[in-house]
Write a protein that binds this DNA or RNA. Structure first.
Length: 512
DNA sequence: GATATGCTTAAATAG
DNA sequence: CTATTTCCAGCATATC
């Protein structure tokens, strides 16, 4: 009986795939359609997570958890493709209702086609576009920076290129350190009074449905916009200051068909936002063009996304089983690929003091520090390996670049320091989040003193790097869920966004 | 080694 | 208010 039902399900799926065939033909993967049948048989044999067999949704498609080969850690070779195609199709609505126009295609689509909010998203587009333009000739910055901008512009190949050199960044850093500018890729540094941080009720909002996987504060002092990516492939934007009685200031899009693993807002061009996903895609949301572009596509899941602080033309991401790739966004292909770990890589980060130094963390149980200038193609050798006893969820460099903090399921936050990160110390911290809460990832604040990491009591533990212990815990009666993913505002000291598994964002702030 | 299965966990939401 | 549902982690254990 169950077999019968699944057979029916298979039939419908095959129909869907037929419908997608034209699209697939252009992608030159249609020749592998013949392999689908076999893939389905495997999938049928595979049981989804313990579902009570009695309750079946009547006359609905059975809810089968789509687990592609890649999420099961299998090689991305031939037989996995069937899953990919399924994930490209629109999520089935009711059998007889006309299919919603779906952007789930392997290509660019308009923002409005991915928009899932109730009102209009015009206000968001306006806010981001206006600020983005302001940022390229920011009035809050003195003439000095405009000179740098000119300097930067003079080195461009064309108008759509935002490259700038190492030396330029160095000059920027020397001159602008500590200044409040509208937009630069250098983080402000400073100390924060932990006791003064608070979570105000107006700084709480549900930005997406379901579990948040990635959160990012826009790198601007002119506005407060926070982007959150969830498990379903949604990306929500919260324009915090625009909230009033009529508007919630929240805008929801659906650019991906699987969990969103990374969000990058371009510091010099706030209207350009990269997103990565388990669906194997990297997209570029261009708010001015009002499109979600396709930058990169893979058969493997993409688990994290990063960028060097001095190169806006390249993105780095981790893919499948332990691979990091670099992609030139102007060309759209990967120009480098390294196999660095045996298992999925949960984070990729770059050192602010030396953009060639990269850190990775892996489910394999290790974190690595790498020098991109010395990467052997076959077997890259790490400058430093951190060994944990369980999976490592993150490895992030401190604001100065002198330290590295890794977070692991083995209940440690490891702290590396020293000229070659040779000094390692462990700070105990309960990181057992269980199944429903995204893993904790300790993030740096605005100097090398403190690290912020969620706890299971709905608070934020602050680890002191000198005392190697929890020195403070941010708590609030307004926090109704566990904040598990964080982003510290790069230019506003004390502004820390925490994201929950229920789609909420908490913004802790320092008094102004 | 590959594969399956069971257990942990919190919060939205259905009732 | 309680009962149910979620189910793309990660780990331990059992079986082949």
């Amino acid at each position: 009986m169950a077999t019968e039902k699944l057979t029916e399900y298979e039939r419908r799926r095959l129909e869907t795939i037929k419908r997608n065939e034209e699209m697939l033909v252009s992608l030159k993967i249609h020749t592998r359609l013949s392999e689908l049948s076999a893939a389905f048989k495997r999938q049928r044999a595979e049981k989804s997570y313990k579902v009570s067999p009695e309750k079946k949704p009547k006359s609905e498609e059975p809810v089968v958890i789509r687990r592609s080969l890649r999420t099961r850690g299998l090689p991305p070779d031939a037989p996995g493709l069937g899953d990919e195609i399924i994930e490209l199709r629109a999520k089935p609505s009711k059998p007889n209702s006309p299919p919603k126009p779906s952007p789930h295609v392997l290509g660019p689509f308009r923002m409005r086609d991915a928009y899932r909010g109730s009102g209009s998203d015009e206000a968001l587009i306006k806010t981001i576009s206006r600020r983005s333009q302001v940022n390229s000739s920011d009035e809050s910055v003195n003439g000095q920076e405009n000179d740098y901008k000119d300097q930067i512009s003079s080195g461009l190949h064309d108008g759509s290129d935002w490259s700038y050199s190492n030396s330029t960044v160095r000059v920027l850093e020397d001159n602008l350190l500590g200044c409040s500018t509208g937009c630069e890729s250098i983080r402000v540094k400073g100390s924060v009074d932990l006791g003064s941080l608070s979570l105000e009720p107006e700084n709480i909002a549900r930005v997406v449905p379901g579990r948040i996987m990635a959160v990012r504060i826009f790198p601007s002092t002119e506005m407060t916009i926070i982007a959150a990516g969830n498990k379903f492939g949604d990306v929500g934007f919260w324009d915090v200051e625009s909230r009033n009685e009529d508007r919630d200031g929240i805008y929801l899009y659906h650019p991906h068909t699987a969990p969103v693993s990374g969000i990058l807002v371009q510091p010099f061009s706030l209207s350009k936002i990269y997103t990565s996903s388990y669906d194997g895609l990297v997209r570029l949301m261009d708010v001015e063009k009002e499109v979600f572009d396709l930058i990169y596509s893979s058969n493997d899941a993409i688990f994290s996304l990063s960028q060097q602080p001095n190169d806006a033309n390249s993105i780095y991401f981790s893919e499948g089983n332990g691979v990091v790739k670099m992609c030139d966004v102007r060309v759209g292909n990967t120009s480098a690929s390294w196999n660095l770990h045996e298992n999925r890589i949960n984070s990729v980060d770059f050192n602010s003091a030396n953009a060639s130094i990269m850190a990775t963390s892996s489910t394999e149980g290790t974190a690595g520090v790498w020098d991109l200038r010395k990467m052997h193609v076959d077997k890259p050798k790490a400058l430093k390996m951190v060994c944990h006893r369980r999976s490592v969820q993150s490895a992030y460099f401190s604001p100065s670049g002198n330290c590295l903090a890794t977070t692991s399921f083995d209940n440690n936050v490891a702290l590396l320091s020293g000229a070659n990160f040779e000094d390692i110390s462990m700070i105990r911290h309960d990181n057992q989040t269980g199944r429903w809460i995204s893993s904790f990832r300790a993030v740096w604040g605005w100097n090398d003193s403190y690290i912020y990491v969620g706890n299971m009591k709905r608070g934020v533990d602050v680890l002191c790097t000198t005392q190697k212990r929890i020195i403070f815990t941010l708590q609030s009666q307004h926090a109704s869920a566990i904040p598990c993913r964080f982003d510290a505002h790069p230019h506003k000291i004390g502004m820390l966004a925490g994201a929950t598994s229920g789609g909420q964002i908490y913004i802790w702030t320092a008094p102004s």
